[in-house]
Design a protein around this nucleic acid. Structure first.
Length: 846
DNA sequence: ATCTGTGGCCACCAGC
DNA sequence: GCTGGTGGCCAC
């Protein structure tokens, strides 16, 4: 049922294989009509393999030695229709199979075909389709839409990359064309359901779907705000505290409720949920089947890992926010727990609505308010900051060649895999299998650097010994995208590091046993290098350019963020055994060159009489704010190392202790930046953290060295005040709670039982006695307090059980990290306080 | 089924 | 009481 669509600009969202139609099904988003256009491609596309007469060994040899492997078409195997024995015969006659899913051997291809899941990869490659960009369909042909970049920005790009190598330059221009396309705003609806479960079963199984759905909330980008409520016996209406524009619809039976839900879903090309894969959509589907609704009338399609829409796409934000790259690089590690409440609190500063008792016993209006609120914050997670998340996904989709519904559910190693494989196919290069890149364990150990931390695979970044003290007039310098720069400049890639050419074995990397090919550009080096250059020289400075519209600025900063995510991951995956192109020598070489670069730069600084105070991996702190000295160092580095050293900031003063990764810097405007100190860590009690931050603020007030006396007095007052509150039991117990994440379920801790696990077990036991069998899961956060003789979960502890001495110790160690480098100690400061305290408490006792 | 890396500090556990 | 090892959080 191929639909004729003409002359429209549509964004390609996803591609899948329709097993019934035996056709490719493409989903395009049409911005004009706000709908998904389904496109069944009736042109022939069969999964096939090209066969080339050769042997594996011979080809591998060639692969390492030649500039490029060109695949020649000699014979096709039709994987879908050929009989297996026939295929095997062809394979026997032609031992090497390349192509079909180009680059992969027939074994991989057959496996991929059977799994059905990689279909879009081969289809999209064959048709030269890239998800996330605009197309027209005309005369049954899919034609990419053309967008031209504004002249000013293009000029800036060309100027920024004029010194790049030709191959990199070409690639950068290709990226620029792809990434400067406008970003569509996708019409979407967020959905959340509530289920009539009882207390004993707080997380009902969606496969079983035992309880009826009592409420479904909707919040959409076109301002639809609706809750559908199931009428039940004995439930009161309650008071209507909902905003006026929220529709509450009552229905009498679940089937009608579900039909209403489906009617709404069908109006939207994109549906957003929080944990919809595992719960909401699965639950709805199974209840619909139970209610006797026919499969073909349900717009939901359940996959193995993903619940999808027949007419559109579904994004499960739970899976997206679980992604570590998204968490750290896109959202700056703002959230640490992955519940809807925790994420929305951290990002939107909005919470779920609280209620007591069971959800099934709430009044209708309270249920509606609770349910709608969940749907609304779910939607808002995609719409805050000008649809940031949606746009980020679309840009990542363009870079990695993956549909957003896929990439939003999987980890970054798979993004990079998709991006790198696409590039292989594009140049008709063979994609090596894992076993072809594998190195024998003993051999690998022999050739790799020794890690500083036992149990790690190789040595990483270098951390300089800090020079203890307070320094006024300090500059922070760092290398822009150091590891990607190294990969670019040194031509690092799995096929160029330790290449097969005898003559290159002399090109040893200093401090390592690896050598680098200088005959051809490595594929990883080209990809990572071009992405690095376009970010540093174009997308990063672009938003500052004058005369840009806010849409343009927004696009550029989103692209910059997406590139940051990809670049940060691309080095890491090469050292990750799970990555299909894992090749440790590349990661090892990258880090080794990084250590060389920072060492040489420190040396160069010394030669120029610049004192280096501290440095970590790609950053240096120098005791100078002289622009000339800084510029000299920067140009030295550019000239001798080919990497971009940049001035990050000049600081009024900096404080270093003997501890690495622990320091304080103060900007000229008084803003204080703390790194690594215990006082800022998220697991310590709020009571300690608040006092710590108050003290930190005082540091911002110090303009010169002699101001520290005053600061000291003020910090003393803060410490004294806090201690007093603690002694008088005036600190609310919640503020005394440690909060720590469980990385395993409590039963899985075997070697030692840490305190937070003890607390978690106590809590589980307590709940079990109440009849609640729910246990704590990996990723859950346990709040506990230190009591005399041990720990207790926050919920079960009384204020009088608190071990005040322990908390005083924590205050001491936290404050000492701050005071030590300033030449004071907590005991000095509190020594004064203690006398007063004594005086004070004896007075009250009397 | 899913999973990017190493270096460093702190508090605590468990065994001696 | 000392000490090596574990687990969590952070810097890059």
């Amino acid at each position: 049922m191929s639909e004729q669509i003409e002359n429209e600009n549509m964004v390609l969202l996803s591609a899948s294989y329709d097993g019934i139609e035996k056709k490719a099904c493409l989903k395009f988003y049409d911005e004009k009509t706000n709908t998904i256009k389904l496109w069944y491609d009736s042109s022939e596309h069969k999964p096939y393999c090209l066969v080339k007469k050769d042997t594996d060994e011979k080809l591998l040899e060639t692969f390492k030695n030649e500039d490029k492997i060109i695949i020649e078409e000699t014979k096709k195997i039709d994987l879908l229709n050929d009989k297996e024995e026939n295929m095997l015969k062809i394979i026997a006659d032609n031992p090497l199979i390349i192509g079909g899913m180009p680059g992969r051997s027939i074994r991989d291809r057959v496996v991929a075909w059977e799994a059905d899941i990689k279909y879009y990869e081969t289809y999209m490659y064959d048709k030269s389709l890239i998800p996330g960009i605009y197309y027209k369909i005309k005369d049954n042909q899919i034609i990419p839409s053309k967008f031209t970049t504004p002249k000013e920005t293009n000029d800036m790009l060309q100027k920024g990359i004029e010194n790049a190598d030709d191959d990199i330059k070409e690639k950068i221009n290709e990226w620029a064309e792809l990434l400067s396309q406008p970003l569509p705003s996708i019409k979407r609806v967020a959905l959340d359901i509530e289920v009539q479960s009882d207390k004993m079963d707080r997380f009902p199984d969606a496969g079983e779907a035992r309880y009826q759905i009592i409420s479904v909330g909707f919040a959409a980008s076109d301002n639809l705000k609706q809750v559908i409520i199931l009428r039940r016996n004995g439930i009161e209406l309650g008071t209507n505290e909902l905003e006026k524009d929220i529709d509450v619809i009552f229905v009498d039976d679940e089937k009608t409720l579900l039909e209403n839900v489906f009617k709404i879903i069908r109006n939207y090309p994109c549906i957003i949920t929080y944990n919809g894969d595992d719960f909401d959509l699965k639950y709805i589907y199974n209840r619909a089947i139970k209610a006797g609704i026919k499969k073909e009338d349900i717009p939901i399609q359940l996959g193995r890992i993903e619940a999808n829409l027949k007419h559109g796409i579904h994004l499960d934000l739970y899976r997206t926010f679980l992604n570590r790259s998204i968490q750290i690089y896109a959202f700056g590690n703002k959230y640490s727990e992955h519940s809807l409440n925790a994420v929305s609190k951290a990002i939107l500063n909005k919470s779920k609505i609280e209620f007591t008792g069971e959800i099934g016993q709430q009044t209708y209006y309270h249920l509606a308010r609770y349910n709608f609120n969940d749907a609304e914050i779910t939607l808002e997670l995609t719409s805050f900051d000008g649809d940031l998340l949606m746009k980020l996904l679309l840009v990542i989709s363009r870079i990695t060649k993956m549909p957003i519904n896929d990439l939003s559910r999987i980890g970054v190693s798979n993004w990079i895999r998709s991006m790198v494989y696409f590039e292989h196919r594009k140049i008709n290069a063979l994609i090596p299998r894992k076993d072809e890149l594998a190195i024998d364990d003993d051999e690998l150990k022999e050739m790799s650097s020794e890690a500083v931390i036992e149990g790690k695979q190789y040595q990483g970044g270098m951390v300089l010994e800090p020079k203890i003290g307070v320094y006024f007039g300090v500059s922070a310098l760092d290398f822009a995208s150091l590891y990607p720069s190294i990969i670019k400049v040194n031509n690092l890639s799995y096929e160029t590091v330790r290449c097969k050419h005898k003559e290159h074995r002399e090109n040893l990397i200093k401090g390592s046993k690896h050598w680098i090919c200088d005959k051809r550009r490595g594929i990883i080096s080209l990809l990572v290098g071009s992405l690095r250059d376009i970010r540093v020289n174009y997308y990063k400075p672009l938003p500052k350019m004058e005369g840009l519209s806010s849409d343009e600025k927004n696009l550029y900063s989103v692209v910059s963020q997406a590139l940051k995510v990809i670049l940060n991951a691309s080095y890491g995956v090469l050292g990750a055994p799970i990555f299909p192109l894992f090749f440790l020598p590349v990661a090892d070489s990258t880090a080794a060159i990084g250590r060389n670069i920072i060492t040489e730069t420190v040396e160069a600084a010394r030669n120029n009489n610049i004192e280096v105070l501290y440095g970590d991996t790609d950053s240096l702190f120098i005791k100078s704010i002289d622009q000339n000295e800084i510029d000299n160092l920067i140009s030295w580095s550019q000239k001798n190392q080919g990497v971009d050293l940049e001035l990050e900031a000049k600081y009024r003063y900096a404080v270093f202790s003997e501890r690495k990764k622990n320091y304080i810097v103060v900007k000229n405007d008084g803003q204080v930046i703390i790194k690594g100190l215990t006082g800022k860590k998220s697991h310590i009690p709020l009571f300690v953290r608040e006092a710590f931050y108050e003290a930190i603020e005082r540091l911002g007030e110090a303009e010169t060295e002699k101001d520290f006396e005053k600061v000291k007095t003020e910090i003393r007052n803060i410490a004294r005040e806090s201690n007093k509150l603690l002694k008088e039991d005036k600190v609310p117990i919640e503020k005394l709670a440690f909060r720590m994440m469980l990385s395993k379920s409590t039963k899985m801790y075997k070697t030692t039982i840490p305190q937070h696990v003890r607390a978690a077990r106590l809590l589980e036991e307590h709940n079990r006695e109440k009849g609640d069998i729910e246990v704590m899961k990996p990723g859950d956060i346990i709040s506990f307090v230190k009591t005399i003789g041990g720990v207790k979960p926050l919920e079960l502890a009384k204020i009088r059980e608190i071990d005040k001495k322990k908390y005083e110790e924590i205050m001491k160690s936290t404050f000492d990290q701050l005071l030590g480098p300033l030449g004071y100690s907590f005991d000095d400061i509190l020594g004064v306080t203690r006398l007063e305290d004594l005086f004070w408490s004896s007075k009250t006792e009397n």
